[in-house]
Design a protein around this nucleic acid. Structure first.
Lengths: 78, 78
DNA sequence: TTATTTGCGGCCTTATACGACCCCAAAGAT
DNA sequence: ATCTTTGGGGTCGTATAAGGCCGCAAATAA
């Protein structure tokens, strides 16, 4: 049922995703093209607005050319 | 739309999850209790029958007392 | 043999992720 | 000043994850 605590975690995840995308020098649309996920959806993920599924996580990893686990390795929110 | 390729990946993930649970000596019901996820749902996840969300992944990690990324670190299906 | 645990599939309702698309405001480029 | 890119919010229909409960067959324990 998506608690406030979850919201926070999703937001933190989104921030990290955004960082990884920027580091790779990709725009939302470029990344969208690279993993077949609508750019507005990626924007929502980065904003922590949606609780993505496992397969979506894997798709994002494809665009970033990174191992899926990498997307989870970030400093937790304090 | 959950492709056959995704099915395979989810199944592989499930097998790994099952291994981690067994290694920890937990029954489905014990694990259910440890992460507040219905035992039948965990069984379905292990069977690769559902495409779990990010928060569910985190809950599973809690029960296994492991970092979420660990659940993704397994040998890919060949 | 009987009682208990364990794995797991089915069913139902509700919440929500997905996919696709539109549009706009701000920033950058020409 | 005009064109283009970029981030990102809103909407709609559909698919499906979540959550919870029931029941059963096989394995295990008593």
């Amino acid at each position: 049922m998506i608690t406030p605590a979850d919201k926070k975690i999703l937001k933190r995840f989104g921030e990290n995703l955004r960082k990884l995308r920027k580091d790779k020098g990709l725009s939302l649309r470029e990344m969208s093209y690279a993993c077949s996920i609508d750019n507005s959806k990626i924007a929502k993920i980065e904003k922590g607005m949606i609780n993505i599924t496992f397969t979506t996580l894997l798709q994002l990893a494809v665009a970033l050319e990174a191992h899926p686990a990498v997307l989870l390795e970030y400093a937790p929110a304090e």
